[in-house]
Amino acid sequence: MKTGISVFVATFVALGASWCGFVLAPLLQLGGAKQTVVLQTTDNWPLQRTGAATLGLQVYRANGCAACHTELVRQTGVAFEVLLTSAGNNPAAVSNLISNLKLAGLTKEEADDANAKITAIGGKVETRLTATGADIARGWGLRQSVAADYLYDQPVQLGSLRAGPDLANIGVRAPDLNWQLLHLYAPKAVNPNSTMPSFKFLFEVRKIGNAPAPDALHLPKEFAAADGYEIVPKPEAIELAAYLLSLKANQPLYEAPFSPVTAAK
């Protein structure tokens, strides 16, 4: 490193290489990504969010929700489970057999093995695939988040810290609009342990007119407005709640398969 030129070249090559690797290559590999198909259906995934939810993404961005919440579920692997769908002609033998068999948390071979044993004596079974991992066990999702889930988001806000729970599936886990609004206004009203700040500024305190407004919040007494007043969500609050309700990563995809729960019924 005797001359400025050699320092320049070393720097240029080093940064240029990682630029090609981590900027150019992902753009080429993923920049043209299109909708994919939900496993074993012809449904497209993901769907464009609704208008209100698209606006709500901007409320989420502006208020920095991603400072405390992630929007991605991780998984460590998959496990198989074997479900008996019909005991066949010899229920006693089948019942006897399955009481001695391990039927959940299996590898593919174990599942096939159990499948073969039960089918041999006339029972009918179904093999189901489930994702594993702490995030999944926590009920934060049915499968890991994959690149396709974020196709339409501008900006994508994966988050880097879980000071609050993951939100990748909050639309599945808490599908009630009123719950969402209540939680935004007074987190402690629905979850006494919550450390989330209140987003009071997304709501309006209004004097009740002739009759209470239809979208006024129904708050517990200690959080309610003064007598004669009501708490009404501003448009931003409705949009943010719509966005939260639109957060669903619950369809099996080629790169993140699982057996949908409905198939077990």
Binding site: V23, P26, L30, A147, V156, L158
Partner: peptide, 20 residues
């Protein structure tokens, strides 16, 4: 140029560039 533009790159390309 990629992340502060009117039209952002698709999906997870955004966080990848941002992490880089």
């Amino acid at each position: 140029l990629f992340l502060n533009a009117h039209q952002l790159p698709r999906g997870v390309v955004q966080p990848i560039i941002c992490w880089w």
